[in-house]
Design a binder for these strands. Structure first.
Lengths: 337, 337
DNA sequence: TTGTAGGCGTTATCAT
DNA sequence: ATGATAACGCCTACAA
């Protein structure tokens, strides 16, 4: 005489119902804490649930509700510190709200690939998507897709009318450029990020604004690819025409590579050239010389993204976050103390 | 006269069946390419699928098959370069095989938390789990769980009888320690990773083995926490008792912090002290001096993990991978050229 | 407050 | 080779 639940199958809502001597519907009500249910009955049901170690089948629930309690993360950034920290925070915040997270890494940012990635996430019935794909093209594709799935983007220009969420990149870039100016540097170069990257544009804009405001000459920015290797290369090249006294690199990795290149060429940092970066990655404080940079709170960004997305999903009013204030981390790479 | 599929609902297998003038069962057969089906019929079905832009409902499929085509990634490492690269590779490999990936970050490694994380993944019906939780305790908990879900661990000692998959940490540690010895260093310290971390133990073991084999004195290892900040602190402390001529740090971050600490104390690297690390993170080549370290192929590790896990899930014979050979990256932090 | 009936979209089983 | 029918485990709607 074996009950179904003893035959290796996972206990279902009906097994619980039988044990608690109620209908399976009552069990369902307990599960979704429906208001009208007698405490006594509820207790019996909860008891049965505990006894059987019953867990609702998420697939069944997803099928009938067409909601999966799952958030998708669409990322087009490979293993960098910033996005990675944000993703970890997203995941934690989502779990805290009862959502699980599935990630999808974009290897290309062609409209087709983005489209198919979003569709794939749709197939998986994610309830919403967080996009960490800082290229403007991705942004455009997304807008045009009229996707049925709510989404939030993590990076964007700091323009007020954007959907996106981000630290105020432009303000940060301005801040650090002004710092260089305050130090008495007047020929300030910019080692920018790749074209098409929203953050690269914002940081460049902040840089240009600061220079213009100070009536300082601007130079055509060098286009980098975010990597330390490129920074290294650029440093060696730049050292041949030392018509500058400071460089603002669009991220820390390039700044560190840049310093390496300068070192190779016999240029001293900060004596001959000031170098500053952006992001404040964990090694920034420990390279030689310690890197002056702009600190970003990637984790907070991730948490906000989830809050915003969930509000959108639930149809609540979106919490309005002020822009995340970037903070200057002054160390020795801009000037010796 | 509106067909169901025109009323905003997603087209289902029955809509396809109606359009192709077959039973929904036949459509299902086409979907799962069942052998016995007339090519002509199949073509008609595929046509209808294309016309309706039909996509199978994954939740429904998961419900009936109790397989989700989803892999879980259980990670207990916060945003470090190595694990992150592996996770990206895992995700890519999994998608290539038609699996999606859901990640779960462990904030604590208490048995209860691990248990509930695994159960959570179980609730989500993952078909298998990749564990990147390099603490031995996690490993033990997992073994004891007799979980019904197949899993693979990414880190482990290099002992042959382990389930885990990893680069040969011990060999790498040995290799780099021998390199220090070959350079003529005889008083070699080890800045280790935290107790309880499998990799920390392996690297320490490799270090000890190399020293013993060379009849060199060993010192009690300093226990670090993997961070550059700790390395920095340790460097300042160690500089007060300079009874050593080389330090092998268990990872690059600590090595970089260490060099910073030495610099603060006026100790020159590599002239006074050689410093080497482990991992070959992207900045390793660009710090001053460039860091001699052991390169690990994190991506390959991730791919192998997926291959192994899928074989286990499908009941195929597991591909037997040889240990991933670690490779020495000789730069200037151990000795000046 | 509780129960009954029906359906979500798919695959499995047994017919034909 | 194809079709009818019955699950899978849950929720929503309505009835009692």
């Amino acid at each position: 005489m074996t009950s179904p639940s003893e035959r290796g199958r996972m206990p279902s809502i009906r097994d619980v119902a039988r044990l608690a001597e109620v209908s399976h519907q009552t069990v369902s009500r307990v599960l979704n804490d429906h208001p009208s249910i007698r405490p006594e009955t509820k207790a019996r049901v909860l008891d049965a649930i505990a006894v059987l170690d019953y867990r609702p089948n998420l697939a069944a629930r997803a099928l009938v509700t067409s909601k999966s309690q799952t958030l998708g993360v669409l990322s087009a950034t490979i293993g960098e510190f910033g996005p990675t920290s944000s993703i970890a925070a997203i995941e934690e915040a989502a779990r805290a709200e009862g959502y699980s997270v599935t990630t999808l890494n974009l290897t290309s940012t062609s409209p087709e690939d983005i489209g198919s990635a979003v569709r794939q996430l749709g197939r998986e019935h994610v309830d919403g998507i967080v996009v960490l794909a800082p290229q403007v093209r991705v942004f455009h594709v997304l807008r045009g897709m009229a996707s049925t799935v709510p989404f939030v983007t993590l990076q964007s220009a700091s323009g007020a009318d954007e959907i996106g969420l981000s630290a105020d990149q432009m303000a940060g870039a301005r801040l650090i450029t002004e710092h260089l100016i305050a130090l008495g540097r007047t020929e300030i170069l910019h080692l920018a990020g790749p074209q098409d990257w929203i953050e690269a544009e914002s940081r460049m804009r902040g840089y240009l604004d600061a220079l213009r405001e100070a009536d300082l000459p601007t130079f055509p920015p060098i286009r980098g690819d975010w990597t330390a290797d490129f920074g290294h290369f650029a440093g060696q090249e730049l050292a041949r025409r030392p018509d500058f006294t400071a460089v603002f690199a669009a991220n820390d990795l390039m700044a560190i590579g840049l310093m390496h290149g300068f070192r190779d060429a016999g240029l001293r940092v900060p004596e001959d050239v000031s170098v500053v970066g952006f992001d404040d990655i964990p090694v920034a404080a420990h390279v030689a010389p310690p890197l002056t940079t702009v600190h970003q709170d990637f984790s907070e960004l991730g948490r906000r993204a989830v809050a915003l997305l969930l509000a959108q999903i639930r149809g609540e009013v979106a919490p309005s976050f002020g822009a995340l204030a970037p903070v200057l981390r002054i160390r020795e790479s801009a000037v010796s103390r």
